[in-house]
Amino acid sequence: MPTLRLVDPDGYSVPGALRTTAPDTEAQARTDLKNLAADHAAQWADFGYHPDAYQIRADPAA
């Protein structure tokens, strides 16, 4: 099962933004991480963060 990771525009993993998924839960996990990106970007908007600059990366199963 892959683990999805939300990465901010500076390349750092967003705290609390790891989701281990199965094929039937991956779409919901991606939606949750996109919502988290919007929240995180709003918190750091004074520093120029924008939700579109975040990436969701998949770490392969170990």
Rank of each mutant, 00 (worst) to 15 (best):
M1K: 11
M1L: 11
M1F: 10
P2E: 12
T3F: 05
T3Y: 00
L4E: 03
L4R: 03
L4M: 05
L6C: 04
L6S: 01
L6I: 03
V7H: 04
V7T: 12
V7S: 08
D8K: 09
D8P: 06
P9K: 07
P9G: 02
P9Y: 03
P9A: 09
D10N: 13
D10T: 10
D10W: 02
D10M: 08
G11V: 02
G11A: 04
G11K: 04
Y12R: 15
Y12T: 11
Y12A: 13
S13T: 13
V14W: 03
P15K: 09
P15S: 03
G16Q: 05
A17I: 11
A17T: 02
A17S: 15
A17C: 06
L18Y: 13
L18N: 05
L18H: 07
L18V: 06
R19V: 02
T20P: 01
T20E: 07
T20V: 08
T21Q: 01
T21L: 11
T21P: 01
A22F: 07
A22Q: 14
A22W: 07
A22V: 10
P23G: 08
P23F: 07
P23H: 08
P23E: 09
T25C: 02
T25P: 02
T25R: 04
E26M: 04
E26K: 15
E26N: 05
E26I: 15
A27W: 01
Q28K: 10
A29Y: 00
A29W: 01
A29N: 02
A29T: 01
R30T: 00
R30M: 03
R30V: 04
T31F: 10
T31G: 08
T31W: 05
T31E: 05
D32M: 10
D32E: 15
L33Q: 00
L33E: 00
L33A: 00
K34H: 06
K34A: 11
K34D: 01
N35F: 06
N35I: 09
L36C: 02
L36Y: 02
L36P: 00
A37Y: 00
A37F: 01
A38G: 03
A38N: 07
D39K: 14
D39E: 12
D39P: 01
H40R: 15
H40V: 08
A41N: 00
A41D: 01
A41E: 00
A41V: 02
A42I: 04
Q43M: 10
Q43L: 11
W44H: 15
W44A: 11
W44P: 01
W44V: 05
A45T: 03
D46L: 13
F47Y: 15
F47L: 15
G48R: 10
G48Y: 05
G48M: 10
Y49I: 10
Y49R: 14
Y49E: 14
H50T: 03
H50C: 04
H50S: 09
H50R: 14
P51Q: 10
P51H: 07
P51S: 10
D52M: 13
D52C: 10
D52N: 14
A53S: 07
A53V: 05
A53H: 12
Y54L: 11
Y54I: 06
Y54G: 03
R57F: 10
R57D: 08
R57T: 09
A58Y: 03
D59R: 14
D59N: 11
D59W: 13
D59G: 07
P60L: 14
P60N: 09
P60K: 11
P60C: 10
A61K: 13
A61Y: 08
A61I: 12
A61H: 12
A62M: 12
A62G: 12
A62N: 15
